[in-house]
Design a protein around this nucleic acid. Structure first.
Lengths: 229, 229
DNA sequence: GGCATGCTTCGGCCCAGACCGAAGCATGCT
DNA sequence: AGCATGCTTCGGTCTGGGCCGAAGCATGCC
C-alpha cells in the first residue's frame, strides 16, 4: 500500500468523533471495556464494537479478554504520541483531567488490595511500574520476564528466585480499578508475601483491602521509589 | 469546542487520501502551487482548491501569493511532526525520496542565480537556512529581522549595517525552484553584492545564472558552513 | 485591449460509512 | 439448567462530503 494511503487510513480512523473520544479516553494508558468506551463516545454498544474492531485491526488498539469483559487499550506508546501530536495541532491543550474513576467504591480498597495471592490496586500497579521502569522486569501482554538486575534486586529484598521457568514466574495481570497491569504469577505472590513479612502492609479483617503501614511507606519508598501520596 | 471534536476534525482532514497526498508532498518544507498539489493528489484543480481552503482554515497550511500563483506550505513544524507521527503508526517508514523536481530546467540555474538583486536557487536557500540556523536572522512569512549575532557576523563579512529599519532590511522571498525561502530585501542585496566583490560567484553572460567559484566554495564553507555538493 | 493561465465558486451527483434495532453468541452467577 | 450481562454480527437507513463540469475572477503576457 502506498504510504499516502496508509497515512490517510490511519488518520481517518482518528478522524471520527466517536473514535476520537474513545482514543482520548485511553490516553492515560488505562484499559477500558467496550461498554465504557461506548459510554464516553455517546454511542450504542454495537456501534462501538464496530469501531473498536477497526481500530484493533489497524493496530491502534490492543484487546485483552478478562472473563466476559474485553479490555481495550492503546496498542503502543507511538499511538499515544500520535494522538498528542494531533491534539497539539488541533490547538487545544490536552487536558490531563482524568475522567471520573470507575471501579471499586471503597477508596482504601482502590489504594491497595490483594488479588488472589498478589498485590493489586494503586500499590500493585506502582510496584509493577517501578520495576519495569528500572529494567528489573520486562512486561508483555502474554507474559513477562525477570532480568538479571531484577534477580539481584529481589535477592536484596530477601526473595530467592527459586522459580523454575522465569516467564511463568512473572505474569502481568490487568488491574481492576487502575485498569493497568500489575505483577501476578510467582513473582507477584512472592513480593506480596514478603511485604506482609516485612510489616509493610497488613490486612483489613474480612476484606481483600490491605493498608500500607508507616514502616511500609518508608520501605516502599526506599525499595521501589514509590510515593503513595 | 471539545478537545475530542477538535482532534477528530484535524485528524479527519488528514484522513482523506487526496489531502494526505498533498500534505505528504509538502513534508520537506517546500511550497507548492495549487495546481501541482492537485497533480500529486490525482484530482482536478477545483477539488484541490476546496481541500486547500479547508486545510488553511484549520491552520494546517499557510498560503502565500506570488503573482498569479498561490504557494502552499505546512503552516508550522508541529504539522510536520504530526504527519510523521501518523506515518509512524501507519507502519510505513517515511520515504525521504523527493518527488521529481519541478522548476527551471537548467541545472546550473537551479543551483544558483540572481533574483532581482539578491541570490536565489540552492545557494540562496542554503545561505538563508544557515543564517537562520545560527540565529543570525529570524525569518517570518511577512518579514524578518537581523539579530545582534547576525550584525556581528555581517561586519566580519565586510557588510556594514547601514540599513534604516531592520525589518525591511531582511525580507524572505519564496524561491522559485527550491520552493523555500531565501533572503531578499536590503540584506539579500548586500549579501549578493559582497559575494560578487569577494569573487565567490560570477555571472554567466546574458543569464540570471551565477556560478560558484573555487574560492567561493571555500569561502561559503568557511563563512556559512555551506557545502554545495 | 485581448488572450492565456491559475485558481475559486457554484451546483449537482453519488457513495462510503456512521448509526441504530434486532438477533445471535459467549461468559459468569445462582 | 436458567437467567443476566457484555459484546458482536446482520440488515437497512440516511447524511456528510468528495468529486467533477461549468462558469466566474484575478493576474500576467503580448
Amino acid at each position: 500500500m502506498s504510504t499516502n494511503a496508509a497515512m490517510a487510513e490511519t488518520a481517518a480512523l482518528v478522524g471520527d468523533p466517536a473514535r476520537a473520544a474513545m482514543l482520548n479516553a485511553l490516553m492515560d494508558g488505562r484499559a477500558l471495556t467496550a461498554g465504557e468506551l461506548a459510554g464516553v463516545a455517546g454511542i450504542t454498544a454495537q456501534t462501538a464494537s464496530g469501531h473498536l474492531a477497526r481500530l484493533a485491526a489497524a493496530g491502534l488498539l490492543a484487546m485483552e479478554r478478562q472473563g466476559r469483559h474485553r479490555y481495550h487499550r492503546l496498542a503502543t506508546p507511538a499511538v499515544a504520541r500520535m494522538l498528542e501530536a494531533i491534539m497539539t495541532v488541533a490547538g487545544s491543550a490536552p487536558p490531563p483531567a482524568r475522567p471520573r474513576r470507575i471501579g471499586p467504591a471503597d477508596a482504601a480498597m482502590r489504594n491497595a488490595r490483594t488479588c488472589y495471592d498478589h498485590l493489586a490496586g494503586r500499590l500493585g500497579v506502582a510496584i509493577a511500574d517501578a520495576m519495569a521502569a528500572r529494567g528489573q522486569v520486562e512486561l508483555a501482554t502474554d507474559g513477562g520476564a525477570v532480568t538479571a538486575a531484577g534477580e539481584a534486586f529481589l535477592q536484596s529484598l530477601g526473595i530467592s528466585p527459586q522459580a523454575g521457568t522465569r516467564r511463568a514466574f512473572c505474569k502481568p495481570c490487568l488491574d481492576w480499578s487502575e485498569r493497568r497491569h500489575h505483577l501476578a504469577g510467582g513473582l507477584g505472590a512472592a513480593l506480596c508475601t514478603r511485604c506482609f513479612e516485612l510489616g509493610w502492609v497488613k490486612r483489613v479483617p474480612a476484606s481483600r483491602t490491605v493498608l500500607v503501614t508507616r514502616a511500609g511507606e518508608a520501605g516502599l519508598r526506599q525499595a521501589f521509589g514509590i510515593e503513595l501520596a
